[in-house]
């Protein structure tokens, strides 16, 4: 019985040519394949081929529609409040560090939210920048009235707090909306810039001082259906265990840190104008968006958690 091959159905929402599939899921699958002596195999379904919307991926792992999903919890705004803390403005300094911290934080504090799935990896996408078509963002004054695509619920609040008009929209719509002037700019991670050809429709990229915390991040989870995990023989469970946890999460964060560099290169190759917002200006942005964190604390506390303590704990983990 022991050499039966188990095929895991892995579902995600990006195209097969995405970094997610090529640099993260395929290597991860190759690794469990090798370590199980070929007894664990992935069948990757990209681009929501198994049906549903990206927001429903998490429940697909929970319900056993898929065995493993790569999902953005934040697509279901309000459901994953506790782990959302990592999406607050100016949290964390690199994908690698934040991802390790997120694993530790989420597996300790957010177990209720992630009940029903077995988390394998938590990670963040780093390298968030402001990509604009007509005007370089240098100061908060430049942001006033600018229509900016926001990546997450908290980034929406942050953009509003900085004086711009947030326009939430799915990533696939961003390039066309920029080209057509429906929005003036987008806050998106560098990683997706070349995939969506954003560098071709914008002229300016504004980044914050790299010595300071990241402007914003999006959190991700690689989650497994628990019943599927339980059905595995012990030696295969071990392979899965060996390929999940804080260090694998840190590796995932590193994958996106590297993707940030490739993405940046696309903007450089296009000879777009880059600007690094200096630390004193970033300080003003941080101050202006403090209310976002305060709001988050209130919301989480309303659900019966100690919001202040959670925020402090996340910051401590990130500082290590």
């Amino acid at each position: 019985q022991s050499d039966k091959v188990v095929t895991l159905r892995v579902h995600h929402f990006l195209p097969p040519s995405s970094n997610t599939q090529l640099k993260f899921l395929e290597p991860w699958c190759a690794k469990i394949g090798a370590e199980s002596g070929g007894r664990l195999k992935c069948q990757i379904y990209p681009a929501m081929q198994m049906g549903g919307t990206p927001a429903q991926l998490f429940d697909q792992a929970k319900d056993g529609v898929a065995d493993i999903v790569w999902a953005v919890p934040g697509y279901q705004a309000g459901r994953f409040l506790v782990s959302e803390v990592f999406e607050l403005p100016f949290m964390g300094s690199s994908g690698e560090k934040s991802s390790r911290a997120l694993w530790t934080y989420a597996t300790k504090n957010a177990t209720a939210e992630f009940k029903g799935v077995r988390p394998l990896v938590f990670h963040v996408i780093s390298g968030m920048a402001l990509h604009t078509t007509k005007k370089q963002v240098r100061t908060m004054d430049d942001l006033a009235g600018l229509k900016l695509r926001a990546p997450t619920r908290l980034a929406t609040k942050m953009i509003a707090a900085l004086g711009a008009t947030p326009v939430p929209m799915p990533v696939p719509m961003v390039t066309e909306s920029l080209a057509k002037g429906v929005i003036d700019g987008a806050m998106i991670p560098w990683e997706v810039v070349p995939a969506m050809k954003v560098q071709e429709v914008v002229k300016y990229h504004s980044e914050t001082d790299p010595a300071l915390p990241l402007m914003s991040t999006t959190t991700f989870i690689l989650a497994m259906n628990p019943a599927k995990y339980d059905s595995l023989p012990p030696e295969l469970k071990q392979v899965i265990d060996a390929n999940s946890g804080p260090e694998v999460s840190a590796w995932a964060g590193r994958v996106w840190d590297e993707a940030t560099l490739t993405g940046r290169q696309a903007g450089l190759d296009r000879k777009n104008t880059f600007y690094t917002v200096p630390s004193d200006e970033v300080g003003k942005w941080q101050k202006a968006s403090e209310a976002v964190a305060a709001d988050w604390v209130k919301e989480v506390s309303a659900k019966g958690y100690d919001g202040q303590k959670l925020l402090a704990e996340a910051r401590t983990l990130l500082a290590n």
Partner: peptide
């Protein structure tokens, strides 16, 4: 049948 019923949950609204 469970995965089928669960995938159906999302069909109409999605």
């Amino acid at each position: 049948i469970a995965p089928f019923l669960n995938t159906l949950k999302n069909l109409a609204y999605a």
